[in-house]
Design a protein around this nucleic acid. Sequence first.
DNA 1: ATCCTACATTGGACATTGTCTAAGTCAAGA
DNA 2: TCTTGACTTAGACAATGTCCAATGTAGGAT
Lengths: 137, 137
Amino acid sequence: MSDLLERLRGRGWRLTAQRRVVAEVLDGDHVHYTADEVHALAAERLPEISRATVYNTLGELVTLGEVIEVSTDGRAKRYDPNAHHAHQHLVCARCGTIRDVHPSGDLLADLPTQERYGFAISAVEVTYRGLCPDCAA
Amino acid sequence: MSDLLERLRGRGWRLTAQRRVVAEVLDGDHVHYTADEVHALAAERLPEISRATVYNTLGELVTLGEVIEVSTDGRAKRYDPNAHHAHQHLVCARCGTIRDVHPSGDLLADLPTQERYGFAISAVEVTYRGLCPDCAA
DNA sequence: ATCCTACATTGGACATTGTCTAAGTCAAGA
DNA sequence: TCTTGACTTAGACAATGTCCAATGTAGGAT
């Protein structure tokens, strides 16, 4: 992720303090924050950053394909910076924790043509649900 | 679905006009309404029905396993009465239309043990995304 | 058939998450 | 350094969902 800013600048992104802070917050492994969490963490470094800017920046990162938006349930969307490695999600039904997982098998091939209803399918998402060790205890 | 009310009464459900109307609205094939749509349709038959009751009833039906809650994206959840046949969903990324589909393959077996992080996995959901024929045109 | 009462419904306030806008600010090229 | 169009901000607004106290009622008991 350290070269993310470089990549974005190459695409004509204007590099502002706010965008830099948001990108820094998303840096790291197994990070799946909500927009509000990103805002809180960003505000630790840049207290005046507004919610609107965080939403804007996250939306741009999603559009650019640098970050994936994960809607686990009715709760807030989470943002996953691990966009360059195909993966799926394992979600705790109780506390909402997310882990990245890598199932085997060709998910797209599993859907017969006659079940595609003429759709141009562009993505397959798999969500495994269950209780994490802490919540199961 | 016609025997749904019987089944629910057998479980001690008090049968009210409101609950009957909500169940009737959900009756049918390939129905994936949002809570607000259910409320609007129910209100056609029972104008005084409140939003709270629709939310309560949908929640109960989900808890009882008669209806499945589908969170397609950041939009409103949709309610799928086809709970007794395992199936997955095909969603149009543009208009939000949902079709029920039945992929082959054992999705649960596709996740290696070492990728389960000690979770007790209880469900697997697959969402295929793409553009429906209308939106692709 | 009528009465009781626990359960269901109602309306509206409230909460959460996200979007939009007008006005001010600033990064970066000239 | 100047200029300008893109960026940020605060706060109003919107969409969806939850909660509560007051009221109503289904269905068993009498």
